[in-house]
Design a protein around this nucleic acid. Sequence first.
DNA 1: CAAAATCGTTGACGAGATCAACTATACAGC
DNA 2: GCTGTATAGTTGATCTCGTCAACGATTTTG
Lengths: 158, 158
Amino acid sequence: MRPRLPEELVASTTFLLKRLGFSAKEQAMKAYEQTGLHPYHHAILIVLAEGSRETQGAIADALGYDRGQLVGLLDELEERDLVERRRDPSDRRRHLVRLTPDGEKMLRRLRTLSAEIEDGFLSPLSDKERATLHGLLFRLAEEHDPRCGPIGAPGLTV
Amino acid sequence: MRPRLPEELVASTTFLLKRLGFSAKEQAMKAYEQTGLHPYHHAILIVLAEGSRETQGAIADALGYDRGQLVGLLDELEERDLVERRRDPSDRRRHLVRLTPDGEKMLRRLRTLSAEIEDGFLSPLSDKERATLHGLLFRLAEEHDPRCGPIGAPGLTV
DNA sequence: CAAAATCGTTGACGAGATCAACTATACAGC
DNA sequence: GCTGTATAGTTGATCTCGTCAACGATTTTG
């Protein structure tokens, strides 16, 4: 028999948010193991695929990562030939980071994976309910980060 | 100017969940600083106030805390005379933990605080929308923890 | 009475985030 | 053109926090 969760906690929306947020993260990390990559890596690939942000600083800022942290993540991606670093000829302090063809292929795979995870996670809800939920969460997110700024929090990834 | 968040991320409900969950946790921790207590402490006081769960093992299981972790948290609560540990006479391995009068007073204060935090966090939503959101999250939580089991995840607190 | 299980406690360990240098390069002002 | 200052990426130290294994005291089982 399992201990019950105090009702006072379950009654709190922010509690449920924390709980579900963590649970979603955990599930995602588990699922990503099969790829040998971390959700962090996925987020980086997404930013690169968007174009416009090519230097490490821009990537780090876009995702709210520490720049030192990003170095290691990019090392791992480069190790697997998913991205490519080269000096910016116009400013030799910078590195321009680019997706390789393998990187784009991997990104497609990760997109499918993440869609499956999301679908599974939301399985108890109908399509309409999912849309409602997303709308409400989006409005909260806007409010708490009105600038649509960086992720700005550790562990927040795809 | 702030970097924009990739739309691909914002389009994902689980991403928003992770983001908001973390944000809620961060805000709560900030707000709790004024009390000298951690949300973890609040969760413990809630469990104690419920009655029925008095031994350290039961408390830890109810909240999904590691038992070793709980020891330190209870030490801090006892230090401030908010709870009281005494040996269970019928099983001298156990400790029975009880709220003190000061503990109950503190719990009332924490409840107010946490209600304020929640109210602020949900401020962009109407009452009706808040109810809808809570309902949807609750159904997800049920699904992902059908037994209404322990919190089972680090960092999940009030 | 002996062996195994349980409770609280302690301490070691590892993952992960934060922060402070350091090198190389660019730029601004004199 | 120098010189000082700022920036990009890198590295390494540090701190926090959750996990895990061991231990002494006690109870339960056989």
